[in-house]
Simulated assay, not measured.
Amino acid sequence: MHFEITPKTQQTLSQWIIQNTLAPTDFLSLSPCREGQPISYHYTTLVNHWVTDIGSDKTQYGTHSLRRTKPSLIYAKTKNLRAIQLLLGHAKLESTIEYLGVEIEDALRISESCET
């Protein structure tokens, strides 16, 4: 998966990588619970436990799908791509469009009507 990061984020990540002498195969953040695993492993485990505890199918939920839930609901209700862009911290509207999976023609039409 490819995604855009801001110059400030790129600078911060570069400093972190140098400071911690990370190799290209190293994880940026490690799990506090499982040695050698990325921090995403920790969050995935938490989500799996929460979903199982409420009696739902854990294969239907994930950390990323949960992150997308609120912006998707706001978009469905308001069709305001600019608001979603701001909430997610995307620099480009195209990133928000791709993230939400919105049809490009509809997204651009809606976006143009929101930017005044």
Rank of each mutant, 00 (worst) to 15 (best):
L100A: 10
S95H: 08
A23R: 08
P7N: 01
T52P: 09
K92N: 15
E4V: 03
Q85D: 05
P24L: 01
T45L: 14
T78C: 08
G62K: 05
A23Q: 09
T25P: 00
K8Y: 04
I54Y: 15
K70I: 03
T63A: 05
P24M: 06
P38D: 04
Q15W: 13
S111L: 09
G62F: 06
F27Q: 04
G62D: 00
K79C: 06
F3S: 08
H2E: 15
T96C: 06
P24Y: 00
A23F: 03
D26F: 01
Q37K: 12
I97M: 06
T63I: 13
I97Y: 04
E103P: 01
A76K: 14
E115T: 09
D26M: 02
I74V: 07
S65L: 06
G89F: 05
N48A: 10
L30K: 03
Y43G: 08
E94M: 14
I84Q: 09
R68D: 05
V102A: 01
Q15G: 03
L81Y: 08
P71N: 05
K79Y: 11
S72I: 11
H2T: 14
A23S: 08
P71F: 04
L87I: 06
G36L: 09
I74N: 10
T116F: 05
T21W: 09
D53M: 13
S113Q: 11
T44Q: 00
E35S: 11
L30P: 07
Y41T: 08
I110Y: 01
L108G: 02
I84S: 07
Y75L: 07
I17D: 06
T9A: 15
T96Y: 02
L13Q: 03
R109W: 03
Q85T: 00
N20D: 08
R82S: 06
S56I: 08
R67P: 01
H90R: 07
G89T: 08
Q60A: 09
T45R: 09
H90I: 02
Q11V: 08
L88H: 12
Q19R: 10
G36M: 00
S31Q: 11
S113R: 09
C114V: 10
N20E: 14
E115L: 11
W16A: 06
L22E: 15
Q10L: 11
K70S: 10
K92S: 15
Y41L: 07
T116G: 15
D53Q: 13
P7V: 02
G36N: 08
I110L: 13
L13M: 15
T21F: 07
H90F: 00
T21Q: 06
Q85W: 13
F3I: 12
I97P: 00
V51Q: 07
T116E: 13
E94D: 13
S113L: 14
T59Y: 14
H64G: 05
R68S: 08
Q19L: 00
W50T: 09
E115V: 12
I97R: 02
L86P: 09
K92G: 08
G55D: 12
V51M: 07
A107N: 04
P38R: 00
T45I: 09
